[in-house]
Simulated assay, not measured.
Amino acid sequence: QLAVVAKDYKIYYKKVDGKTPTSYTVDHSAGSYVYDTRGNVRLYSRYGSGAKVLAQDIQTLLNTTP
């Protein structure tokens, strides 16, 4: 099920072997989704974009939503 959800949301993830046989890390995309009151994705905010950019994007959504 994880692979289906990752594909639907265009999420990247990959297990990376560690330095020992029992260790590993996971490379992955990072960000946040903003949904409207109907449960539709309206915005994807990249990790590290900052609060100011996110606030501007949300304000744009609020100004354009009927």
Rank of each mutant, 00 (worst) to 15 (best):
S23W: 04
R46D: 10
L62Q: 09
R42E: 13
K15L: 15
R42L: 08
S49C: 10
K19F: 10
S45D: 10
Y24K: 06
L54A: 03
D27W: 07
S32L: 10
G50K: 06
V41K: 15
K19V: 12
L61W: 04
R42A: 14
R46W: 11
T20C: 05
L43S: 01
N63E: 13
A6M: 06
I11F: 04
K52G: 05
K15Q: 13
D27R: 12
I58D: 05
S45Q: 12
T25Q: 06
V41D: 09
Q1D: 13
V26T: 01
Y13W: 12
V5L: 15
T25F: 11
N63D: 14
Y9T: 02
Y24T: 02
R38T: 15
Q1C: 07
D36W: 07
D36K: 02
V26D: 01
G48K: 00
S49P: 14
Y12D: 11
A30M: 12
A51R: 07
P66K: 09
T37N: 11
Q59E: 14
R38I: 10
Y9Q: 01
Y33S: 07
V4I: 13
V34D: 07
L61I: 14
T22P: 00
G48A: 00
L2S: 13
G48L: 01
L2C: 08
V53E: 10
Y33K: 05
V34T: 10
V53T: 12
S45P: 01
P21G: 08
N63M: 14
V41G: 09
A51H: 09
Y47I: 01
V53Y: 09
R42V: 15
G31T: 04
K19D: 14
L2G: 15
D27S: 13
K14W: 03
T64C: 10
H28M: 11
G39I: 05
Q56N: 09
D17N: 09
Q1N: 15
T25A: 10
V34M: 12
D8F: 06
K15P: 00
K15H: 09
V4F: 08
K19E: 12
V16S: 03
K52C: 00
T60R: 03
Y9H: 06
R38K: 10
L43I: 14
V34A: 13
R38F: 15
L2E: 15
S29H: 04
S45C: 06
G48V: 01
A30V: 00
L61K: 08
S29N: 06
T20W: 02
V53I: 00
S45G: 10
G39L: 11
K7D: 12
L62Y: 02
T25S: 14
K19L: 06
L43D: 02
